[in-house]
C-alpha cells in the first residue's frame, strides 16, 4: 500500500537530489578513506580502545574529574 501511494508522488527532484548527494558523498569519503597517506593515521587510531591510561598508584595529588 505504501508503495502504491508513493507512486503518485510527483516530486522526482526529491529522491533524485538525495540520490545524487549520496553518490557524491559516497565517492568522496571512499576516496578520502582509502588515500594512501591516511593509512598510518588510521592504524594508530584503531588502537585507541586498547590504550588504557596509566594507573596512578599513589594517593591523589591533582584534581580528580
Amino acid at each position: 500500500m505504501k508503495q502504491e501511494v508513493l507512486k503518485h508522488f510527483d516530486v522526482p527532484w526529491l529522491p533524485l537530489t538525495a540520490l545524487v548527494l549520496f553518490v557524491v558523498c559516497f565517492a568522496a569519503y571512499t576516496y578520502w578513506t582509502y588515500r594512501k597517506a591516511n593509512r598510518p593515521h588510521f592504524e594508530s587510531v584503531s588502537r585507541i580502545p586498547l590504550e588504557d591510561p596509566s594507573i596512578k598508584t599513589n594517593d591523589l595529588q591533582g584534581k580528580i574529574s
Binding site: Q3, E4, L6, K7, F9, D10, V11, P12, P15, L16, A18, L19, F22, C25, F26, Y29, T30, T33, Y34, N38, F42, E43, V45, S46
Partner: peptide, 30 residues
C-alpha cells in the same frame, strides 16, 4: 580495518535512514 568502519558509518547514516533507494522504484523518476 578502520577505513572500512568509516565507510560503514557514513553509508549506514546516509542510506539506512532513507530505507535504501527502493523508494525510487515507485516514484516518477526517470
Amino acid at each position: 580495518s578502520y577505513r572500512l568502519s568509516i565507510i560503514h558509518f557514513w553509508s549506514l547514516v546516509f542510506i539506512y535512514i532513507w530505507a535504501g533507494p527502493h523508494h525510487l522504484l515507485y516514484t516518477t523518476l526517470p
